[in-house]
Design a protein around this nucleic acid. Structure first.
Lengths: 110, 110
DNA sequence: AATAATTCTAACCATTTAGTTAGTACATTA
DNA sequence: TAATGTACTAACTAAATGGTTAGAATTATT
């Protein structure tokens, strides 16, 4: 039905701020990136580090971050399983964003 | 019902990153702040500047930003109405965050 | 033989967020 | 006289996001 052709203004699609938010504005996303930081972290370690997150959200976010190349994943073929996560070069570039948000929050919100 | 006492880990409540995201991570929030920027803007101007936003979302966000002191609002008792919005000191402090997100988006996403 | 530890997956439900449609009031313009 | 512009509000619907519960596979531990 011709009426339903949605207009997606270029603004929406190409706006770099929107693009960044689409990637990073989830409830847990930046927390996870921040916790991984410069470290190598196993799934279980992250679960403990990111207080309050459910297992579903944790792997869902991790998978999404791996897909988007912010995080890399190394699986060791062992039993019980061992999986390591770390930030990619791209992932490391998000840390300044976390810093800005942290600074703003610290100074004005909390 | 005792079962429903929700546990809100301190982490969640006091984390400055979460606090900032709670305020700023909406679909339109940062766009609006960015469009107002250092200017004085009327409701209608904003409507045109923030392409694609609905009137509902626009005033909803504006009201929320005024409540949270990121934006100030001046109403002129005229017919037809005239209302001006501008960033407060606090609101201006969000612009570096927008810049970070824009930079990250530009370099890596769009 | 049962339990714990590890890293997930799947199905379902609840909540939050965003979008749509319609309408208000008055004044000016066509 | 009818349409246009201004800044909203309200009621409802749709979509996105997050949470809960259960379980699977294998080994080591009790």
């Amino acid at each position: 039905m011709e009426k339903n052709l949605k207009i997606h203004p270029a603004f929406d699609e190409r706006c770099p701020v929107r693009a960044s938010l689409a990637l990073l504005s989830g409830k847990w996303t930046l927390m996870i990136l921040f916790q991984i930081n410069e470290n190598v972290m196993r799934y279980g370690e992250l679960k403990r580090a990111v207080t309050g997150i459910s297992e579903k959200m944790l792997i869902q976010e991790l998978n999404m971050l791996v897909e988007n190349k912010l995080v890399s994943k190394e699986v060791y073929p062992q039993i019980p399983p061992k999986v390591e996560y770390r930030l990619t070069k791209l992932g490391l570039k998000t840390l300044p964003i976390v810093d800005q948000l942290a600074e703003f929050g610290l100074e004005n919100l909390v």
